[in-house]
Structure formats: C-alpha cells, structure tokens
Simulated assay, not measured.
Amino acid sequence: MPPYTKWGRTRSGCYFCFYQQKIEWVKLKETHPDLYEKAKEYEVPFEKTGNFFTWSQGESLAELEQPERMAQIKRDHALRVERQAQRKDNSTLIAVFSDHDTAEAPDEDDDQGCLVCSL
C-alpha cells in the first residue's frame, strides 16, 4: 500500500486532488500542514470576474480548517464509517488491504501526483 494511505488518503497521493473527501483535507492539514497551505494558496479570486476557486465544493480551505469545522467533519466521517460497517456491502480494495501491516513497506516518493495530474 502506498504510504499516503497510512494517514487517510483513499484516492491518490496528490495533495491538491479536488476529488478528496473533506476528511482527507482534514487529515492533510493535520499530517502535512505545509502541503495544505500550498493548496490553500490556489484559492484566490480570479481578477477579471471575482469568481472564487475552492478545492472543496461549498467552502474554502480557510473555512474548512477552523477547529469547530474540522471537529464536525471528523464526527460526520465517524458516523459514515460506522453506518458503512453495519451495511457490510462489498469491500473496497483499500478496506481489504488496510488490515495488512504496511509498516515494513519501503518509503515511496509520496509527493508525486497521480497519473491524471502528470499528463
């Protein structure tokens, strides 16, 4: 398993992937605050229109990183995980392999983007 799965990523190692779940942004903030700040730098108004780009739909990373908001995201995520565990649907690959010990896996270059971002 790639090292980035150890701290909660489910899709790729790309720190600014706009497909991230809000809990993944929280984990990025807690685990790699420097990369979180780097992603935040992209959230600026476009000069010509004033439109504001955000990575996470409906809120900026500055809003998301507020302690009360991060706590709410963690609570919501815990509830989703609990409900999903009760459903016992088909497992995802990440769920299957998360039970395996990845501590002995060699360190990989975790700051590279996924294939889509490399094109």
Rank of each mutant, 00 (worst) to 15 (best):
M1Q: 06
M1R: 02
P2N: 05
Y4L: 08
T5A: 15
T5M: 12
K6L: 15
K6H: 13
W7I: 03
W7K: 03
G8R: 01
R9W: 08
S12K: 04
S12C: 15
C14M: 08
Y15K: 10
Y15S: 13
F16Q: 11
F16V: 09
C17Q: 08
F18R: 14
F18D: 15
Y19I: 09
Y19M: 14
Q20F: 14
K22W: 06
I23V: 09
W25Y: 12
K27M: 15
L28I: 07
L28D: 06
T31D: 09
T31L: 05
P33T: 04
D34A: 13
D34Q: 10
L35A: 08
L35G: 03
Y36P: 07
E37N: 13
K38L: 12
K40M: 15
E41K: 14
E43C: 05
E43R: 00
V44P: 06
P45L: 04
E47P: 11
K48Q: 13
T49S: 15
T49D: 03
T49A: 01
G50K: 01
G50M: 04
F52C: 04
F52W: 05
F53Q: 01
W55A: 09
W55P: 03
S56V: 08
S56C: 13
Q57K: 11
Q57I: 09
G58P: 02
E59V: 00
S60F: 02
L61F: 01
L61Q: 01
E65Y: 03
P67G: 07
M70F: 00
M70Y: 00
M70V: 00
M70D: 03
I73V: 11
I73A: 01
K74E: 12
R75P: 02
D76K: 07
D76H: 03
A78D: 10
L79D: 12
L79Y: 06
L79M: 08
E82Y: 06
R83W: 04
Q84Y: 08
Q84S: 10
Q84V: 02
A85N: 13
A85Q: 13
Q86P: 00
Q86T: 06
Q86W: 03
R87N: 07
K88R: 15
N90D: 13
S91H: 10
T92M: 09
T92P: 03
T92I: 03
V96C: 05
F97L: 09
S98L: 00
S98G: 02
S98E: 02
D99E: 13
D101A: 00
T102D: 15
A103N: 10
E104C: 02
E104K: 02
A105G: 00
P106D: 12
P106A: 11
P106G: 05
D107V: 08
D107Q: 12
D110M: 10
D110E: 15
D110N: 11
D111L: 14
G113C: 12
V116E: 13
C117P: 05
C117M: 08
